[in-house]
């Protein structure tokens, strides 16, 4: 169990287990995870490839269901929840940043952000979101005309435009070089500071974990370590 925090708990995971069928066998990916996720924190989920990081992220984000255990999100039980309610949960509360950006190719950078902003009534202005990620001059460019770092920043703008309480980032820098990764991580760092959004980021890069408020280490589907960083590093201070 982690240390008792004074911050509000956004999500509570208790005994979360996830199994996948694999031919005649069953693959136990998550083997009983207990975790609280707090408001306005930067949480890194770290572990080697195949340890269950992305699976945990999918369950937190309502994109997948758990095999056993409990999950409460924003005070609501998420185990016995309908598909429609899950959709609403993602619509109102969660923003996503993917490893491969996944922008719509036929929309410009600003339009990609606007497309998601139109889902909620109290969204940020798309231009403002683009500005926050430092891409004002590239707002009218299509994804194919942007560098990878720029595309990922657009993805971040898209994630924040709904003013979600929670942003889930699945290895957002895995496809990027060092300099670009630092760029992106700086943006994420800034979002946490200025918007008060909770960011849960999955990474296999131990160095990135140093900038988090807390680090959850997964190993073989179990929570092997949970620690807080007393002095989280800034993005520009990271080096690998």
């Amino acid at each position: 169990m982690d240390e008792i925090q004074e911050k509000t708990v956004l999500l509570k995971l208790r005994g979360v287990t996830k199994d996948f069928p694999s031919g005649d066998d069953v693959l136990h990916v998550l083997k009983g995870i207990d975790l609280n996720i707090y408001e306005n924190e930067f949480l890194v989920v770290y572990g080697e490839s195949g340890c269950g990081k992305s699976t945990l992220l999918n369950i937190i984000g309502g994109m997948d269901t758990l095999t056993a255990g409990d999950i409460t999100a924003f005070g609501k039980d998420h185990v016995h929840i309908s598909e429609k309610e899950l959709t609403q949960y993602r619509r109102k509360n969660v923003g996503f940043v993917f490893q491969t950006f996944n922008l719509l190719p036929n929309l410009t950078a600003r339009e990609n952000v606007q497309f998601i902003a139109d889902l909620v009534e109290d969204s940020m202005d798309a231009g403002e979101a683009i500005e926050k990620v430092g891409l004002r001059e590239r707002a009218k460019h299509f994804p194919g005309q942007l560098s990878q770092g720029q595309q990922q920043r657009v993805a971040i703008a898209r994630a924040i435009v709904k003013r979600p309480k929670l942003i889930l980032a699945d290895e957002p820098t895995a496809a990027l070089d060092y300099a670009t990764s630092i760029e992106v991580l700086s943006v994420i760092e800034n979002i946490v500071k200025t918007e008060g959004t909770t960011v849960v980021m999955v990474t296999h890069n131990a160095e990135i974990a140093k900038m988090a408020d807390r680090v959850v280490r997964l190993s073989d589907g179990k929570l092997s370590e949970l620690r807080s960083n007393a002095k989280p590093l800034k993005a520009v201070e990271l080096s690998w």
Binding site: L103, L104, P105, N106, L107, T108, E111, Q114, F115, D118, K140, F142, P143, G144, Q145
Partner: peptide
């Protein structure tokens, strides 16, 4: 390997299609 860039310019299309929502414009662009 990179994503394809659409062959039309957003400025050229913007004027003609602004009567439609972004959703509608996306469908036309698709």
């Amino acid at each position: 390997i990179r994503p394809q860039v659409p062959q039309f310019r957003p400025k050229a299309s913007a004027g003609r299609l602004t009567m439609f929502s972004l959703y509608g414009r996306l469908i036309f662009r698709n």
